[in-house]
Design a protein around this nucleic acid. Structure first.
Lengths: 205, 205
DNA sequence: ACCTGAACACCGTTCAAGT
DNA sequence: ACCTGAACACCGTTCAAGT
């Protein structure tokens, strides 16, 4: 077992993880542009050169962090979509998850969707991002199969649903849409009207 | 008339403007995070300290640049929305403008909508941003007045329309949506399906 | 009034050296 | 194998000095 940095020269055995945790803390506290790689190392209690043993550069660390965000969002979406009465309800729940996640974690939202990272540069990150989309696409496919949605190109339906959720998430995650993270009634109203709008667009009849 | 920097020590009389032009060129070429304030000064042909006579800091220059983007988008939207047969057609044209603008100028789009700047810090920028929204809100109001849209809260209708356009613009302006800027047919398909979706949601019957 | 050049505190990244 | 500390080229910002 390695010696802790405060008492010796080596960090514990899982610095990669510790760096990601430190980075997430700084992301929440200071936003995407508000911290440096040196800050991350500082918070993790290692020298500013140590992160380079675990990540190729700062962008790689940010991609890994975004990958975690994508995976969490995917899991939350999948859990919310499952066990609903039908694809329409699943879509409403997915919208709710998107909005709440964005409002409660604006920094991570901006990191994931604000064009800060290039997910394609990292296989894991790209896969995690694609998996988020897959949940949405799965809901669309299920709706088409049971005849709940308009018989159009699934990709077309997914695009409009995705655009709307994406836009709402970024608006909610920035100061542009002034929602109070604790005002449940307001959040519910936003979820309802936006989800309703998507459903009007893609539901049959 | 001031002496040009290449031949003397002073720049021409409109360095503020020249800096914004240089910044826009770099924004198009290298993206939001791809250039420094010192690069801007370099391209404009002045010392790296000169910009501080015209902008409080780098963020202020970026806000001024985004303000130009907002104003241009507003003008394009207003021109496209005017002289249409009805509010539905205006909304479709507005969607077209949004998509084309975003695809053709991804850097500016990300600067305007990607959470890079805080528009509220600059009165002009905030006003220009609000004016973009006002065009959208105007279309909604017009539609409500002639009874074309559902009799719901105008703000609610504007939110769903805005979310969708916003999301689409950011998707189109990032690598996430792989649209070819020169593939008109593909762009038209995107515009049609997304605009249609918004209209399904807000149109009466 | 407007711009320059030196200066300062920072940053991302590299690398020889330590254990 | 993993981490440190010095080093390098950069950056944003400030400020005395020049015209």
């Amino acid at each position: 077992m390695a010696v802790h940095n405060a008492t010796g020269h080596y960090h514990h055995g899982d610095l990669g993880n510790a760096l990601l945790q430190a980075a997430e803390q700084l992301l929440q506290e200071w936003g995407v542009g508000g911290f440096s790689l040196r800050d991350v190392a500082r918070v993790a209690g290692v020298s500013h050169a140590a992160p380079y043993r675990h990540f190729r550069d700062k962008a790689a660390l940010l991609r890994a962090l975004a990958g975690r965000g994508f995976e969490r969002l995917r899991a939350a979406l999948a859990a919310a979509a499952a066990g609903q009465r039908g694809p329409e309800q699943s879509l409403i729940e997915a919208t709710r998850i998107y909005v709440y996640t964005a409002v409660q974690n604006p920094g991570m939202t901006r990191l994931m969707f604000g064009g800060v990272i290039d997910a394609e540069e990292d296989v894991g990150c790209a896969r995690a991002q694609a998996a988020v989309l897959d949940v949405l696409a799965g809901i669309i496919r299920a709706g088409l199969q049971v005849g709940a949605f308009r018989d159009r190109d699934p990709q077309e339906l997914a695009l409009v649903a995705w655009s709307t959720l994406h836009g709402l998430a970024l608006l909610a995650g920035s100061a542009q849409l002034d929602v109070d993270p604790d005002d449940t009634a307001q959040l519910e109203a936003v979820v309802r009207s936006v989800a309703q709008n998507i459903l009007y667009g893609i539901s049959r009849s």
